[in-house]
Design a protein around this nucleic acid. Sequence first.
DNA 1: TTTGCTGCAAATTATTTGCATAGTA
DNA 2: TACTATGCAAATAATTTGCAGCAAA
Lengths: 130, 130
Amino acid sequence: MRMTKARRDILKIFNENDKPLNAEQLSKILEEDYDLSTIYRNLNFFEEQAILRSIVFSDKIKYYFTSKGHYHFVYCTKCKKFQKINKCFEEEFKKHINKKLDFEVKSHTLYFEGLCHDCKNRRDYDEAND
Amino acid sequence: MRMTKARRDILKIFNENDKPLNAEQLSKILEEDYDLSTIYRNLNFFEEQAILRSIVFSDKIKYYFTSKGHYHFVYCTKCKKFQKINKCFEEEFKKHINKKLDFEVKSHTLYFEGLCHDCKNRRDYDEAND
DNA sequence: TTTGCTGCAAATTATTTGCATAGTA
DNA sequence: TACTATGCAAATAATTTGCAGCAAA
């Protein structure tokens, strides 16, 4: 891993920011100092290195955030802003969100990504052939 | 709402299938009887009518499923298949997933979509101007 | 010096849209 | 018949990629 100015600048922003950001937003914060392709490449790189994590909401844009801590958010479909949640169970969540954040929940989704039974067992074979 | 052959065929598939499907998959199941734009238009239509719900995973493709029941899934990032989950709390979920489904969880995400405090209070204004 | 990173331009791909025609009520 | 849905082709937009030059180690 080569620590370039672009990478330093990008990491700095994520460390100062606890809300998910997409490539476009990052580019603006960086005052367009870097080409978008550079930003995309670095975001991918950081995700591979598990330094950043990403999430895709219904707008189909990839948002990145640091891998430390929780991956639970409320996302406003109108202004596209996030708020972090620190509580951990669904029912509590809902109360917390409705009352403490004054956020009107329209829908919620929980998903787990990983490898299913079949892919898990075929892993070595697949990785050698991907 | 005009009940066309395309709409009937699409709904039939979703009613027989409890796993999320994307436009491409649907098109194949329908043996390419309909143009993709027709399928996309109808999926949007059904979602507006709250007959279908959708979810976007890390592959950025929109998957649709019937609005009845739970919106909790495990999603295999390799084969892109889903399995439904019926349990309702996170910790229980994890055990359930790991043991009962033999699914190796790599990451999980929970999110609530809706309107934040600001947008909620500005709702009338915004809706009139969108 | 060497290899990996960046900028630029072009490609990719899921989805959307305009328009003329066909189909439903 | 009146209006909506469909097919086709072209447009859109986030992201990726090839390539040549530049910058970390």
